[in-house]
């Protein structure tokens, strides 16, 4: 029995390593859980991308839930995510708000002209100051914000079809059940 002990220790170690590998495939190790989840979204006032003289604030968007999608023309992963947003935007049932992050307005406009514009409202944060309040540390990131202005769901990294069907749509459905 005592001679088998090293073998059991070995099996235990293998299981531990196996769990580590499995765990890293199950979640994105780069994603930091947002402390803002289920808390009111930070107040913001940002200019529209196509009409820089007009601003959109948090209170302007209160009343109905919306999906705030942080993107930029310089962001490679956003190009990966974009076709999914294009395809899914009409079926989401919530307003899609584009948040152009640290981008030259001209670059963003070119990028949208090339890839298409799925956004109902488009705001630009060129200095990236407001994004710090949202805890944004890269693009793309997406926030589902309810009618009361509370962040209900956050996704870091590109929106894939998988994420839309397994996470985003159930989250939206739960919101719509709450506020008929």
């Amino acid at each position: 029995m005592s001679r088998l002990l090293p073998f059991f220790a070995f099996v235990l170690l293998v299981e531990l390593f196996g769990f580590g590998i499995w765990w890293n495939t199950q979640h994105d190790p780069q994603a930091i859980p947002s402390p803002l989840l289920n808390k009111p979204a930070p107040a913001f006032v940002l200019p529209k991308l196509y009409e820089p003289t007009v601003t959109v604030s948090k209170s302007d968007l209160l009343g109905k839930p919306y999906l705030l999608n942080v993107f930029a023309s310089w962001c490679v992963e956003c190009g990966v995510e974009h076709p999914v947003l294009q395809a899914e935007a009409p079926t989401l049932g919530v307003l899609l708000v584009g948040y152009d992050y640290k981008d030259a307005p001209e670059d963003a406009k070119h990028w949208l002209a090339e890839h298409g514009n799925p956004y109902g409202v488009l705001i630009a944060d060129q200095p990236g100051q407001t994004a710090i309040d949202f805890g944004v540390y890269g693009a793309p990131e997406s926030f589902l914000i309810d009618g009361k202005g509370v962040i209900r769901y956050k996704h870091i990294g590109p929106m894939t079809e998988d994420v839309v069907t397994s996470e985003l749509k159930p989250a939206i459905a739960a919101l719509q059940k709450e506020t008929p």
Partner: peptide, 8 residues
Amino acid sequence: LVARYSDY
């Protein structure tokens, strides 16, 4: 910073 980016 913690309020925005967690204890991370």
